Computed example of a mutant assay.
Amino acid sequence: MEVFVRLLALLVVLLLGTGLRTLGVLDAGRTARLNAVAYYVALPALIFVSTYDRAIGELLSPALFGGLLLVLFATAGLAWMVHRRRASRARQSVAVVQSYHSNLGYLGLPLVAATFDATVTAIASVVLGVVTLIQLPLTVLVLSTLNGADAALGAELRSLARNPVLGALLAGLAIGSIGFSVPAPAVTGLDLVGSLALPLALLCVGASLQFDLPSVDVGATGSIIALKIVCMPLLAWLVFSTLDVDTATLTATVVMFGTPTAVSTFVFAAELGGDSEFASLNVFATTLVSMATLFLLITLVG
């Protein structure tokens, strides 16, 4: 019941963001500023606090790294098989990337931190870092190749070096690995800031969700929902159960891969020739349905 109430509260905050956008309270400028606070301040603080007292060897094992690669590329391969016959390249490219590109930062990690203990949260931070380094270039490559768009992949890779989320992860793991002691007041302050990551992120995601019912392609959107929030976490469960990892790793990976399609896929679709209206609809649909599937996943692995 506690998990259900928590996820219901998340859904309320998400829909609140959508409502505030509709009323004009969260316009594009205010949403961008709120997004900046979440992305550059709250989320990095959450990641740092989760990892600063743990050595990298405790969190990133060969089994975790290999399992993450296997789940991501296996889901991407399944997505290609399912969507390869779609008539529109613009829609096909979006369908493929939105079937595997997870909302790990704005929903996955904050949700794990609010639901599970520090060990699971620390592993989820590493999952965020590793998968982001792979899924972002992969998404740019798929969209630009299928749509014939001119994408500066090198620029996207260089932007990862300036990514505050990855920077916070590396800083936390480095400090944890050398055993440096962080002052308690600093940890308390960062922990307080990090606790704002989930509500801020949900408001931003809610303010970004848009859809047009007459344009709904039920078959395509249904396939994306099935692949992203049903098949991907089940595949993660199978892979990491087979690898015989500890409970914390299994929990973190299954929940993180059970998150909906990332809002950033809409931005990439708009920039690289994808069907942006279709992309927006799928972000909304996977996010809404994931509230139920995440409840089930958290109940099972928790």
Rank of each mutant, 00 (worst) to 15 (best):
T261V: 08
A79D: 01
D212Y: 15
P233M: 02
L14S: 03
L272G: 08
F65L: 10
I175C: 06
R86N: 14
P164R: 11
D150P: 14
L60M: 01
S195L: 09
L294A: 00
L128G: 02
A42H: 04
F180M: 15
V230K: 00
L14C: 05
I56G: 11
G206V: 01
F180A: 15
S280I: 06
A113G: 06
L300G: 03
D191C: 11
V193M: 12
A152P: 14
L59K: 05
L157C: 10
L16M: 13
S88A: 11
R6E: 07
A95Y: 02
A269M: 08
T139D: 06
F266M: 08
L213Y: 14
A9H: 07
A87T: 11
F65E: 00
T31S: 09
A90R: 12
D244F: 11
T139Y: 07
V218W: 14
D244M: 13
L227Q: 10
T188L: 14
I178H: 10
I225W: 05
L169R: 05
A174L: 13
G77I: 05
V182W: 08
F278Q: 08
Y40R: 11
V37T: 04
F268C: 10
S264L: 14
V193F: 03
F266K: 04
A55Y: 00
A186H: 10
V218Q: 12
Y52M: 09
Y100L: 07
L138H: 12
I56K: 07
M1D: 07
V263L: 05
G17C: 01
D246P: 07
T139K: 10
F73K: 01
P199A: 04
T121K: 05
E2V: 14
G154W: 08
L69T: 05
V12R: 08
L213I: 15
L69N: 04
V97G: 03
A74V: 09
V5T: 13
A45G: 02
Q210F: 13
S159Y: 08
L133K: 04
G179W: 02
S50G: 07
C204G: 07
S215P: 07
L10N: 11
